[in-house]
Design a protein around this nucleic acid. Structure first.
Lengths: 332, 332
DNA sequence: TGCTTTGATGTAACCGGTTACATTTCGTTG
DNA sequence: CAACGAAATGTAACCGGTTACATCAAAGCA
């Protein structure tokens, strides 16, 4: 193991001079500098970053808690996080939590124990629980955010987006609109449901809970829920799914029932994942700037870490766009 | 910052006793142990893992280089890596390289500089280049592997799998079979092409390079390549795509051309991603144990890190399975 | 010449654990 | 009671950088 002392010996200088040559070359005389750099080269010296981190009490790593990496939307968010972090010289420690709060708390401990400088949580759960405000490690909550988040947040106006989708369906003449929801207890699902109801109320329609089906954001759950809706005595003429995976599951189930989309029934999704524009029929959905969620989250987190106070309580609302494709059409 | 010295003072013992109480409680007398644990509790002490890692020269982190996290197959592999690493007490530092060799070498440097104990590379590129055999940091190459990998590997017998798909198409009577390939220079693509040719040769058919289209594993490239194949004067009656994303892009393009799958043309994919069984028509494909790739890679890597020599040169071949669904049918 | 200033470099403390070795305590046995 | 061994605990070196402070030489100035 070549360390700084070996290099110092090789160059005939002190360890301080070696350190200075690498960190602040301008305060070292040119002659010494060259000798040190030659010694570094000769010894194949790479500073031991563990020592550097230990000394500076900074790891330049960020923990990212993701409910499930298999979800393509989260994959895009992570891509954005990774890119932004890399550009700022940070690495990301990825933790696939599968929504397990015990695992999330364990991973959050990596910040408390100095294995990472901060944490990005993509789910509505605070892994630091009742830590006193003083002791709270740097954290940012993105995508699915807590209502009273104790940290900066990055989210979509899910209520407005869901309302926009619903209004689109209403404008096509649909009056019986089914909904395939996400997991209960999720603020995200609650907000999308509220936006859905907002639109119905504005159109003078009474909410009909028999048309709301639970789901869990997977293809399979969308498939099953669509089956439940179709088997009702008076099935809906349109289905709003809280994400694209469930919408694609629903498309499949509808086809299996011998019905056509959108002629017999319309389907709308949420997220605009890559598959949304390639499936059959292509999906009407809400496009979100997934990568930007990640980039903004990193930016806010580094502000907190560096104690740039202006960021202490920032809450970003990201823009969305209704993308109308083939899966929605006039009510039969 | 509460550190071990504060706790020692609080408990009225030496730092060594505190350390021993936490690491090897059995060699500390019960009375002292209780006093120390009470002090730990009272001080809210959490050991600074940076210091522990620094001292032990182990970070218990693994770097994972993934070409693109947006690919659902890799997402599954990463899920397996994450799960296995977590179970063994390791964290994973995820690096989305987008195939950029400069970025890969930079990330690989995290191992050389002791920010991580080892590296899993999911692409056929050796980021440590010409490092002498002695100095090579622990590494495992999985999924797309180098031909002469200087480390343990985990891969599929891509040639045999491609041959199985092709034989399936041949058995349905197809004689003009198109192929949508992955990126050139990829051993994975080369092997799948070889398997494809093996099957054709065994059936007494001459290879026809005009039916081979380049792609890059994205939906879009499959879409474009399928367009190229369909516009030929004598289009193929079946298309074998080197992954499911491209196959789904092809499905879309074929539908846009007013043709039906599998009545007019058959399509086969590779990977069996979640969407493969939900798209329309569902995809005939090769199922791979994606999560197992990750688990095995972690296991081999930890063997190398812990210098269990038996693993030094292991090359695992993972099993595959041909899954026949709706997208392939008899030749017209 | 003598004194101060500036620039370059060296010395050693420090970060917070771990652990080899030294020391103390205590029980056991002749 | 002395002597010994085992168990419990303390002391301090150590990991590999960083950096405050000390030191020293050379230059500037009266």
């Amino acid at each position: 193991m070549t360390n700084i002392r070996k290099v110092a010996e090789l160059a005939g200088v002190s360890v301080a001079t070696v350190s200075r040559t690498l960190k602040t070359p301008d305060i070292v005389s040119p002659g010494t500098r060259d000798r040190v750099l030659a010694a570094v080269e000769q010894a194949g010296y790479r500073p031991n970053l563990m020592a550097v981190q230990f000394r500076s009490q900074r790891t330049r790593n960020l923990v990212v808690l993701v409910p499930t990496i298999a979800n393509t939307f989260f994959a895009r968010v992570i891509g954005g996080i990774q890119e932004a972090a890399q550009r700022r010289g940070y690495g990301i420690l990825l933790c696939n939590t599968l929504g397990d709060e015990r695992a999330e708390r364990a991973y959050a401990g990596m910040v408390s124990t100095r294995q990472a400088d901060g944490l990005i949580q993509l789910r509505a759960y605070d892994p630091f629980g009742a830590s006193s405000a003083e002791a709270r490690p740097p954290m940012v909550n993105a995508c699915e955010v807590l209502d009273e988040a104790p940290c900066p947040t990055v989210k979509l106006d899910n209520r407005a987006a869901a309302r926009a989708v619903t209004e689109h369906l209403l404008s096509l003449g649909h009056r019986r609109i089914g909904m395939i929801k996400g997991p209960r207890n999720s603020p995200l699902t609650r907000d999308r449901l509220l936006g859905f109801q907002d639109a119905l109320a504005a159109a003078g329609l009474a909410p009909d809970e028999s048309l709301w089906c639970p789901g869990d954001f997977t293809l399979r759950s969308g498939h099953r829920a669509a089956g439940d809706l179709l088997s009702q005595s008076e099935p809906p003429t349109a289905i709003f799914c809280e994400n694209d995976e469930m919408a694609m599951g629903a498309l499949r189930r509808i086809r299996e029932a011998g019905l056509r989309v959108p002629e017999d029934i319309s389907v709308a999704g949420f997220d605009d994942i890559a598959f949304a524009s390639f499936c059959d029929p292509s999906l009407t959905t809400i496009a979100q700037p997934a990568e930007d969620f990640g980039r903004v989250a990193v930016s806010l987190l580094l502000d907190v870490i560096d104690e740039r106070d202006e960021a202490a309580d920032q809450h970003c609302i990201m823009p969305f766009e209704l993308v109308v494709r083939e899966s929605t059409g006039p009510s039969a």
